[in-house]
Design a protein around this nucleic acid. Structure first.
Lengths: 118, 118
DNA sequence: TCAATTGTTCAATGACCATTGAAATGAATG
DNA sequence: CATTCATTTCAATGGTCATTGAACAATTGA
């Protein structure tokens, strides 16, 4: 009879990040920033590209930032946002972790998707 | 002056999948199924392991299934759920796609997280 | 200093979501 | 055929989230 853990902090953290990405606007923001690379992009340009109101974008950026998925640095009167690569790597890792202890075929099946991307 | 696309079906689809994973209970369910491998696991055992009411689990399973992240097959009076590997691979791929056209350092930064998992 | 630019915060609204208990389905067993 | 078992569906509840307009900083340049 094993003890039941029905509350795991690591799950909550990873779920919060995935939930942050689980919104059309935020996903577009994130992918736009991924494509922009480490230099990032100011909020205004981001709003124009994604096609969303500035105040609305601002709250979405806060969600992504609180999840640790993006970082911000001020530059003049702009604020430049960029992806945090470590966080997204860790999140993906957590999502599929434990898939290879006993079931290596799972990770093999995942490879094509990754190769297509990178 | 480029045309603004502020509604992309691909984004909506991927966001729906990430949103499905962006809930602590559903994330635990998904990872439990990943660990279970292709054979999957009946709903009852899943409910016991994750520590959630059966009717509640049922609705969460529906969300994951509508996102295409898991599949179900009946077996006797049980219903056995298992992960759909193609979907999760495609979702991860979409998440980080376009990161290497001009910014290969992004994908290089992602690799360690994947290796840790697999 | 005045005004324009760049973003954020706030409050309010409506919409969506998770959870619960009770009832219902559907398959196996006696 | 009635019963048990495994799971789902339903309705109702409270809670959280996205969006909008208006007001508020903070920075730059005339």
């Amino acid at each position: 009879m094993t003890i039941e853990m029905n509350d795991n902090p690591a799950d909550d953290e990873a779920a919060a990040r995935l939930s942050a990405l689980g919104h059309p606007t935020r996903l577009r923001v994130f992918r736009t920033l991924i494509a922009a690379g480490p230099d990032g992009m100011p909020a205004g340009e981001l709003a124009a590209r994604v096609g969303v109101a500035k105040n609305n974008l601002s709250s979405h950026l806060n969600v992504l930032r609180q999840g640790g998925l993006i970082v911000m640095r001020p530059s003049g009167r702009s604020r430049i946002y960029a992806v945090d690569l470590d966080t997204i790597a860790a999140t993906i890792g957590y999502l599929v972790s434990d898939c290879c202890q006993g079931h290596p075929e799972v990770c093999e099946a995942l490879s094509p998707g990754m190769e297509r991307a990178c």
